[in-house]
Amino acid sequence: MMKVLELKGVTKKYGGFTAVDAVSLEIEQGKVLSLLGPSGCGKTTTLRIIAGFTSPDSGSVEISGEDVGQLRPYERNVGLLFQDYALFPHMTVDQNVAYGMRYRGTPVSAVASRVKQMLSLVQLGGMENRYPNQLSGGQQQRVALARALATDPQIVLLDEPLSALDAKLRLELRIELKEILRSVGATTIVVTHDQEEALSLGDEVVVMHAGTVVQRGTPTQIYEAPASKFVAEFVGRSNWFYGARPRRSDSGMSSYLTGDGVEICARSGQEGSSADLCIRPENIELVNGSAREPVDYPGHNVLLGVVLDVAPLGADVHVVIELPGKSRLLAIRKNVGRSQALLPGEPVRAVFSMSDVLVF
Rank of each mutant, 00 (worst) to 15 (best):
F360L: 11
S113E: 14
M101A: 07
E196H: 08
L323P: 09
R245H: 10
S339C: 07
R48G: 02
I175V: 14
T151I: 15
R245E: 09
A244Y: 04
T218A: 08
L358A: 15
L313Q: 15
M101H: 03
G305E: 00
G305L: 06
S290G: 15
V10S: 11
L87P: 03
G261E: 13
S64M: 13
N301E: 05
P56Y: 10
G138R: 01
T18R: 01
K178C: 04
N96S: 07
V111S: 04
F53V: 12
R76N: 00
Q134V: 06
L121H: 03
G65I: 10
G40D: 07
D67H: 12
G69P: 02
R72P: 01
R102H: 07
A22L: 01
K326R: 15
G325L: 13
M354D: 00
V235C: 06
A19I: 08
R248H: 12
G202V: 04
V190P: 02
G272S: 09
A244R: 10
Y131M: 13
P56V: 11
T45L: 10
E176G: 06
Y74F: 10
I27P: 00
G79F: 04
Q195F: 10
G325A: 13
G59Y: 11
E204K: 07
V32R: 12
L329N: 00
L358F: 15
I27K: 05
R147L: 07
P312A: 14
R280T: 06
L330I: 12
K3M: 09
E271R: 11
N335Y: 05
A146Y: 05
L36R: 02
K168H: 06
I49N: 03
R174N: 03
G272W: 08
P246V: 09
N239C: 05
T151C: 10
P161K: 04
R104W: 04
L173E: 06
L199F: 07
L36A: 04
G337Q: 14
A148T: 06
Q154R: 13
L71N: 02
C41D: 03
Q154C: 02
V191I: 09
L173Y: 04
A112I: 04
V207R: 00
A225S: 11
L330G: 05
E285D: 09
G138A: 08
G69Q: 06
I284Q: 07
C278P: 00
L165T: 08
L169C: 01
F352Q: 09
P246A: 05
P298T: 12
N288C: 07
N77T: 03
L71V: 02
L165K: 03
V231L: 08
V108S: 11
V111W: 04
G9N: 15
E271D: 12
V184K: 05
G15Y: 11
G105A: 11
E62K: 13
K334I: 07
V336G: 12
L304Q: 15
A51R: 10
V205K: 02
L87F: 10
D260H: 14
V306A: 02
M118I: 07
G305T: 01
A164N: 13
G42A: 06
N288T: 09
I222A: 06
S136Q: 11
T258Y: 08
D309S: 11
L135T: 12
E176S: 13
T188P: 02
P161I: 01
R102N: 03
K334P: 01
L145W: 03
G52F: 11
Y74N: 09
G42M: 03
R247S: 02
V348Y: 11
L343V: 15
D152M: 08
V143A: 01
A275P: 01
